[in-house]
Protein backbone atom coordinates (compact mmCIF):
# COMPACT_ATOMS: atom_id res chain seq x y z
CA UNK A 1 0.00 0.00 0.00
CA UNK A 2 1.14 3.45 -0.78
CA UNK A 3 1.26 5.85 2.09
CA UNK A 4 -1.34 8.59 1.53
CA UNK A 5 0.38 11.85 0.91
CA UNK A 6 -1.14 15.28 0.67
CA UNK A 7 -0.64 17.27 -2.52
CA UNK A 8 1.22 20.01 -0.68
CA UNK A 9 4.03 17.63 0.08
CA UNK A 10 4.59 16.48 -3.50
CA UNK A 11 7.87 17.18 -5.17
CA UNK A 12 7.41 19.69 -8.00
CA UNK A 13 7.02 18.63 -11.59
CA UNK A 14 9.72 19.74 -14.01
CA UNK A 15 8.69 22.13 -16.75
CA UNK A 16 8.30 20.76 -20.24
CA UNK A 17 9.55 22.23 -23.48
CA UNK A 18 7.09 21.12 -26.12
CA UNK A 19 9.43 21.55 -29.08
CA UNK A 20 12.01 19.39 -27.32
CA UNK A 21 9.36 16.75 -26.72
CA UNK A 22 8.39 16.81 -30.38
CA UNK A 23 12.02 16.27 -31.37
CA UNK A 24 12.40 13.39 -28.97
CA UNK A 25 9.20 11.79 -30.19
CA UNK A 26 10.35 12.15 -33.77
CA UNK A 27 13.42 10.12 -32.85
CA UNK A 28 11.25 7.24 -31.59
CA UNK A 29 9.43 7.34 -34.89
CA UNK A 30 12.66 6.79 -36.82
CA UNK A 31 13.13 3.42 -35.15
CA UNK A 32 12.75 0.79 -37.81
CA UNK A 33 10.82 -2.26 -36.65
CA UNK A 34 11.27 -5.13 -39.06
CA UNK A 35 10.92 -8.92 -39.33
CA UNK A 36 11.09 -10.84 -36.03
CA UNK A 37 10.98 -7.67 -34.05
CA UNK A 38 7.84 -6.53 -35.82
CA UNK A 39 6.06 -9.86 -35.42
CA UNK A 40 6.83 -9.98 -31.71
CA UNK A 41 5.81 -6.36 -31.32
CA UNK A 42 2.47 -6.88 -33.07
CA UNK A 43 1.58 -9.80 -30.78
CA UNK A 44 2.47 -7.62 -27.87
CA UNK A 45 0.23 -4.83 -29.13
CA UNK A 46 -2.72 -7.18 -29.50
CA UNK A 47 -2.25 -8.50 -25.98
CA UNK A 48 -2.25 -4.94 -24.64
CA UNK A 49 -5.49 -3.76 -26.23
CA UNK A 50 -8.48 -2.71 -24.15
CA UNK A 51 -11.25 -3.26 -26.69
CA UNK A 52 -13.57 -0.40 -26.05
CA UNK A 53 -17.14 0.59 -26.61
CA UNK A 54 -18.34 3.70 -24.80
CA UNK A 55 -21.39 4.96 -26.54
CA UNK A 56 -24.84 6.09 -25.50
CA UNK A 57 -26.24 3.56 -27.95
CA UNK A 58 -24.37 0.58 -26.44
CA UNK A 59 -26.61 -2.43 -25.90
CA UNK A 60 -26.06 -5.85 -24.34
CA UNK A 61 -25.95 -7.24 -27.87
CA UNK A 62 -23.16 -4.95 -28.94
CA UNK A 63 -21.15 -5.62 -25.79
CA UNK A 64 -21.55 -9.39 -26.08
CA UNK A 65 -20.28 -9.35 -29.67
CA UNK A 66 -17.28 -7.28 -28.69
CA UNK A 67 -16.51 -9.65 -25.83
CA UNK A 68 -16.55 -12.59 -28.22
CA UNK A 69 -14.11 -10.78 -30.45
CA UNK A 70 -11.88 -10.14 -27.42
CA UNK A 71 -10.97 -13.79 -27.21
CA UNK A 72 -11.53 -14.75 -30.84
CA UNK A 73 -9.60 -12.03 -32.57
CA UNK A 74 -9.04 -13.89 -35.80
CA UNK A 75 -9.96 -17.53 -35.65
CA UNK A 76 -8.77 -18.05 -39.21
CA UNK A 77 -5.26 -17.95 -37.80
CA UNK A 78 -4.45 -19.71 -34.57
CA UNK A 79 -1.39 -17.89 -33.43
CA UNK A 80 -2.76 -14.62 -32.05
CA UNK A 81 -3.23 -13.72 -28.39
CA UNK A 82 -6.35 -12.40 -26.71
CA UNK A 83 -6.69 -8.73 -25.97
CA UNK A 84 -6.09 -7.60 -22.39
CA UNK A 85 -9.53 -6.35 -21.51
CA UNK A 86 -12.78 -4.89 -22.68
CA UNK A 87 -13.76 -1.43 -21.56
CA UNK A 88 -17.43 -0.55 -21.10
CA UNK A 89 -19.83 1.64 -19.14
CA UNK A 90 -20.79 0.45 -15.61
CA UNK A 91 -24.23 -0.66 -16.78
CA UNK A 92 -22.57 -3.12 -19.17
CA UNK A 93 -20.06 -4.61 -16.73
CA UNK A 94 -22.24 -7.53 -15.69
CA UNK A 95 -22.95 -8.47 -19.30
CA UNK A 96 -19.27 -8.30 -20.25
CA UNK A 97 -18.21 -10.24 -17.18
CA UNK A 98 -20.62 -13.02 -18.01
CA UNK A 99 -19.60 -13.08 -21.66
CA UNK A 100 -15.93 -13.36 -20.74
CA UNK A 101 -16.37 -15.96 -18.05
CA UNK A 102 -13.58 -18.51 -18.23
CA UNK A 103 -11.23 -16.34 -20.28
CA UNK A 104 -8.20 -14.29 -19.22
CA UNK A 105 -9.76 -11.13 -20.64
CA UNK A 106 -10.41 -8.54 -17.95
CA UNK A 107 -13.37 -6.18 -17.70
CA UNK A 108 -12.68 -2.53 -17.23
CA UNK A 109 -15.39 -0.03 -16.48
CA UNK A 110 -15.32 3.71 -16.85
CA UNK A 111 -16.75 5.59 -13.91
CA UNK A 112 -16.95 8.93 -12.08
CA UNK A 113 -19.53 10.44 -14.43
CA UNK A 114 -17.47 9.56 -17.46
CA UNK A 115 -16.59 11.32 -19.73
CA UNK A 116 -17.03 14.84 -18.31
CA UNK A 117 -16.66 14.02 -14.62
CA UNK A 118 -19.06 16.84 -13.88
CA UNK A 119 -20.81 15.39 -10.86
CA UNK A 120 -20.51 15.21 -7.10
CA UNK A 121 -17.98 13.18 -5.18
CA UNK A 122 -20.77 11.01 -3.71
CA UNK A 123 -22.16 10.10 -7.11
CA UNK A 124 -18.67 9.34 -8.42
CA UNK A 125 -17.97 7.05 -5.50
CA UNK A 126 -21.33 5.35 -5.92
CA UNK A 127 -20.69 5.00 -9.66
CA UNK A 128 -17.34 3.37 -8.95
CA UNK A 129 -18.63 1.04 -6.24
CA UNK A 130 -21.47 -0.05 -8.51
CA UNK A 131 -19.03 -1.01 -11.28
CA UNK A 132 -16.78 -2.88 -8.87
CA UNK A 133 -19.78 -4.70 -7.38
CA UNK A 134 -20.88 -5.68 -10.88
CA UNK A 135 -17.52 -7.40 -11.28
CA UNK A 136 -15.21 -4.84 -12.88
CA UNK A 137 -11.53 -5.79 -12.58
CA UNK A 138 -10.40 -2.32 -13.46
CA UNK A 139 -11.84 1.16 -13.07
CA UNK A 140 -11.12 3.95 -15.56
CA UNK A 141 -11.95 7.21 -13.77
CA UNK A 142 -11.75 10.73 -15.14
CA UNK A 143 -10.18 13.61 -13.26
CA UNK A 144 -12.04 16.90 -12.76
CA UNK A 145 -10.39 18.92 -15.48
CA UNK A 146 -12.29 22.08 -14.61
CA UNK A 147 -10.99 21.94 -11.06
CA UNK A 148 -7.48 21.21 -12.31
CA UNK A 149 -7.48 24.14 -14.70
CA UNK A 150 -8.85 26.36 -11.91
CA UNK A 151 -5.78 25.43 -9.86
CA UNK A 152 -7.67 23.31 -7.33
CA UNK A 153 -5.05 20.60 -7.29
CA UNK A 154 -5.92 19.47 -3.77
CA UNK A 155 -9.46 18.78 -4.90
CA UNK A 156 -8.22 16.69 -7.82
CA UNK A 157 -5.79 14.84 -5.60
CA UNK A 158 -8.37 14.06 -2.91
CA UNK A 159 -10.93 12.95 -5.45
CA UNK A 160 -8.54 10.44 -6.98
CA UNK A 161 -7.59 9.18 -3.53
CA UNK A 162 -11.25 8.66 -2.60
CA UNK A 163 -11.99 6.78 -5.82
CA UNK A 164 -8.94 4.64 -5.22
CA UNK A 165 -10.43 3.73 -1.88
CA UNK A 166 -13.77 2.91 -3.49
CA UNK A 167 -12.05 0.60 -6.00
CA UNK A 168 -11.12 -1.99 -3.42
CA UNK A 169 -9.27 -4.72 -5.29
CA UNK A 170 -9.96 -3.27 -8.75
CA UNK A 171 -7.01 -1.54 -10.37
CA UNK A 172 -7.48 2.17 -10.91
CA UNK A 173 -6.71 3.88 -14.19
CA UNK A 174 -6.85 7.65 -13.98
CA UNK A 175 -7.86 9.41 -17.18
CA UNK A 176 -6.30 12.88 -17.43
CA UNK A 177 -8.18 13.85 -20.59
CA UNK A 178 -5.08 15.52 -21.92
CA UNK A 179 -6.90 17.14 -24.81
CA UNK A 180 -8.57 19.42 -22.27
CA UNK A 181 -5.41 20.11 -20.27
CA UNK A 182 -3.93 21.79 -23.34
CA UNK A 183 -0.27 22.02 -22.30
CA UNK A 184 2.31 19.35 -21.64
CA UNK A 185 3.19 21.14 -18.41
CA UNK A 186 -0.38 20.46 -17.29
CA UNK A 187 -0.20 16.87 -18.48
CA UNK A 188 2.95 16.36 -16.47
CA UNK A 189 1.49 17.97 -13.37
CA UNK A 190 -1.75 15.99 -13.63
CA UNK A 191 0.25 12.75 -14.07
CA UNK A 192 2.13 13.59 -10.95
CA UNK A 193 -1.00 14.26 -8.94
CA UNK A 194 -2.67 11.09 -10.18
CA UNK A 195 0.32 8.89 -9.42
CA UNK A 196 0.83 10.24 -5.91
CA UNK A 197 -2.92 10.09 -5.21
CA UNK A 198 -3.00 6.36 -5.86
CA UNK A 199 -3.38 5.64 -9.57
CA UNK A 200 -2.29 2.18 -10.67
CA UNK A 201 -2.37 3.33 -14.26
CA UNK A 202 -2.47 6.74 -15.83
CA UNK A 203 -4.43 7.08 -19.03
CA UNK A 204 -4.45 9.85 -21.60
CA UNK A 205 -7.99 10.28 -22.79
CA UNK A 206 -11.64 9.38 -22.79
CA UNK A 207 -11.69 9.07 -26.56
CA UNK A 208 -14.33 11.81 -26.67
CA UNK A 209 -11.94 14.77 -27.00
CA UNK A 210 -9.33 15.52 -29.63
CA UNK A 211 -6.37 15.47 -29.60
CA UNK A 212 -6.17 12.25 -27.61
CA UNK A 213 -3.17 9.95 -27.20
CA UNK A 214 -0.54 11.81 -29.18
CA UNK A 215 2.96 10.50 -28.77
CA UNK A 216 3.97 13.79 -27.16
CA UNK A 217 1.39 13.33 -24.43
CA UNK A 218 2.22 9.66 -23.89
CA UNK A 219 5.92 10.52 -23.77
CA UNK A 220 5.29 13.14 -21.10
CA UNK A 221 3.28 10.70 -18.98
CA UNK A 222 5.89 7.95 -19.39
CA UNK A 223 8.55 10.34 -18.12
CA UNK A 224 6.41 11.03 -15.04
CA UNK A 225 6.13 7.28 -14.44
CA UNK A 226 9.88 6.91 -14.88
CA UNK A 227 10.64 9.67 -12.37
CA UNK A 228 8.24 8.15 -9.86
CA UNK A 229 9.79 4.74 -10.32
CA UNK A 230 13.29 6.17 -9.85
CA UNK A 231 12.13 7.89 -6.66
CA UNK A 232 10.15 5.04 -5.12
CA UNK A 233 10.83 1.77 -6.96
CA UNK A 234 7.09 1.45 -7.61
CA UNK A 235 5.80 0.69 -11.09
CA UNK A 236 2.83 2.57 -12.53
CA UNK A 237 1.03 1.46 -15.67
CA UNK A 238 0.31 3.54 -18.74
CA UNK A 239 -2.63 3.54 -21.11
CA UNK A 240 -2.73 5.76 -24.17
CA UNK A 241 -6.31 5.82 -25.43
CA UNK A 242 -7.92 7.36 -28.46
CA UNK A 243 -6.37 8.02 -31.83
CA UNK A 244 -4.09 5.01 -31.99
CA UNK A 245 -5.52 3.16 -34.93
CA UNK A 246 -2.47 1.90 -36.83
CA UNK A 247 0.09 -0.78 -36.09
CA UNK A 248 2.89 1.60 -36.87
CA UNK A 249 1.81 4.10 -34.25
CA UNK A 250 1.22 1.32 -31.73
CA UNK A 251 4.73 -0.06 -32.34
CA UNK A 252 6.20 3.41 -31.93
CA UNK A 253 4.42 3.61 -28.60
CA UNK A 254 6.10 0.36 -27.61
CA UNK A 255 9.44 1.82 -28.68
CA UNK A 256 8.83 4.70 -26.28
CA UNK A 257 7.90 2.37 -23.45
CA UNK A 258 10.96 0.23 -24.05
CA UNK A 259 13.42 3.10 -24.26
CA UNK A 260 12.01 5.11 -21.37
CA UNK A 261 10.78 2.51 -18.92
CA UNK A 262 12.48 -0.64 -20.15
CA UNK A 263 11.30 -4.09 -21.13
CA UNK A 264 9.71 -4.64 -17.71
CA UNK A 265 6.78 -2.53 -18.77
CA UNK A 266 6.29 -4.45 -22.00
CA UNK A 267 3.29 -6.53 -20.95
CA UNK A 268 -0.39 -5.91 -20.42
CA UNK A 269 0.02 -5.68 -16.70
CA UNK A 270 1.75 -2.32 -17.20
CA UNK A 271 0.85 -1.05 -20.59
CA UNK A 272 -2.46 -0.93 -22.46
CA UNK A 273 -3.88 0.59 -25.59
CA UNK A 274 -7.40 1.98 -25.38
CA UNK A 275 -8.59 1.43 -28.90
CA UNK A 276 -11.31 -0.13 -30.99
CA UNK A 277 -10.08 -0.20 -34.58
CA UNK A 278 -6.39 -0.88 -33.78
CA UNK A 279 -6.88 -4.65 -33.37
CA UNK A 280 -7.89 -5.24 -36.97
CA UNK A 281 -5.02 -3.21 -38.36
CA UNK A 282 -2.59 -5.22 -36.26
CA UNK A 283 -4.23 -8.47 -37.41
CA UNK A 284 -3.87 -7.41 -41.03
CA UNK A 285 -0.20 -6.68 -40.46
CA UNK A 286 0.33 -10.04 -38.80
CA UNK A 287 -1.35 -11.84 -41.67
CA UNK A 288 0.76 -9.88 -44.12
CA UNK A 289 3.89 -11.07 -42.30
CA UNK A 290 2.59 -14.65 -42.18
CA UNK A 291 1.42 -14.85 -45.79
CA UNK A 292 3.53 -12.23 -47.54
CA UNK A 293 0.36 -10.79 -49.09
CA UNK A 294 -1.19 -7.40 -48.38
CA UNK A 295 -4.59 -7.78 -46.72
CA UNK A 296 -8.14 -6.43 -47.15
CA UNK A 297 -10.34 -5.32 -44.27
CA UNK A 298 -13.17 -7.44 -45.68
CA UNK A 299 -11.44 -10.48 -44.19
CA UNK A 300 -11.34 -9.19 -40.60
CA UNK A 301 -14.43 -9.02 -38.46
CA UNK A 302 -15.77 -5.74 -37.15
CA UNK A 303 -17.43 -6.10 -33.75
Amino acid sequence: MKVPISFNKLPTSPSIDKVGVEERVARFQTRSIKNESKRQGLDLVLSMIDLTTLEGKDTPGKVKQMCYKAHHLHDAYAGVPNVAAVCVYPSMVRIAKTALNGTDVKVASVSTAFPSGQSTREIKITDTKFAVDEGADEIDMVISRGKFLAGEYNFVFDEIASIKEACGKARLKVILETGELCTLDNVRKASHIAIYAGADFIKTSTGKIQPAATMQVTYTMLMAIKDYYDATGIMIGMKPAGGISTSKLALHNLVMVKEILGNNWLNNEWFRFGASSLANDVLMQIMKLETGVYQSSDYFSID
Binding site: D17, K18, V19, E22, V25, Q29, C182, T183, P211, T214, M215, Q216, G243, I244, T246, L249
Partner: peptide
Protein backbone atom coordinates in the same frame (compact mmCIF):
# COMPACT_ATOMS: atom_id res chain seq x y z
CA UNK B 1 5.86 26.34 -28.58
CA UNK B 2 2.83 25.71 -30.68
CA UNK B 3 -0.02 25.17 -28.24
CA UNK B 4 -3.25 23.84 -29.58
CA UNK B 5 -2.90 22.15 -32.93
CA UNK B 6 -1.28 18.83 -32.40
CA UNK B 7 1.78 18.42 -34.58
CA UNK B 8 1.75 14.67 -34.27
CA UNK B 9 2.00 13.07 -37.64
CA UNK B 10 -0.61 10.52 -36.64
Amino acid sequence: ENIGGSTSSY
